[in-house]
């Protein structure tokens, strides 16, 4: 059994050892995993929000989709991965509450976009960053209204997704 390293909200971790990078109980957050199969280097970013709007934070490198994707690639390249040999798989981006619970009562305050579609917007933001950086997306388990746990094996690039309602799948 490989060592399991937890990647919490807004964190980003990269490894060239054989271990399991895990994010437990993803809701609207997205786990972005990248793997260089030749160099056996893997990384995972636990993305929380789509856009940084210039508010990048050193203490939370994985927080924003736009900044996290580029940062994850850079960290992997720094460790020795080939910038054109990295493939990506993404998991998460659910919408947990059916009723727009985050919709503030004052309907004129702002459109009900804050948390209600954040999962889909996180997924969209990650994908457009991947396209911009020309990183192929080779696996995806996103959307829906249920939570997921991700275990990413950095020795073979396998991404295991488990959930309460939909069992286990491997990307």
């Amino acid at each position: 059994m490989s060592e399991v390293v937890s990647v919490g909200v807004a964190e980003l971790k990269v490894s060239d050892n054989s271990l399991v990078l895990a994010s437990f109980g993803l809701g609207s957050c997205v786990a972005v995993t990248m793997f260089d199969s030749l160099k056996r280097i893997g990384g995972l970013a636990h993305v929380m929000l789509p856009e940084s709007r210039g508010k990048e934070s050193e203490s939370a490198p994985g927080k924003f989709a736009d900044a996290a994707v580029e940062r994850l690639l850079a960290e992997m390249v720094k460790m020795g991965a080939r910038s054109n040999g990295v493939k990506c798989k993404i998991v998460g981006g659910a919408q947990m509450f059916e009723v727009p619970g985050s919709h503030k009562l004052d309907k004129f305050a702002k459109p009900p976009e804050s948390a209600s579609h954040i999962g889909a917007r996180n997924v969209g933001a990650v994908k457009s960053e991947l396209a911009r950086l020309k990183i192929p997306l080779v696996g995806e388990d996103t959307g829906g209204n249920y939570g997921r746990t991700v275990r990413f094996n950095t020795s073979n690039g396998e991404v295991e997704v488990t959930s309460i309602y939909h069992g286990r799948t491997v990307l």
Binding site: G25, G27, S28, A94, M96, E98, S163, Y165
Partner: peptide, 16 residues
């Protein structure tokens, strides 16, 4: 507001 309801992993609910 009106209530939203979910039964799932605690982490996923708190994410929201």
């Amino acid at each position: 507001s009106v209530p939203g309801f979910a039964m799932d992993m605690a982490g996923a609910i708190i994410d929201h």
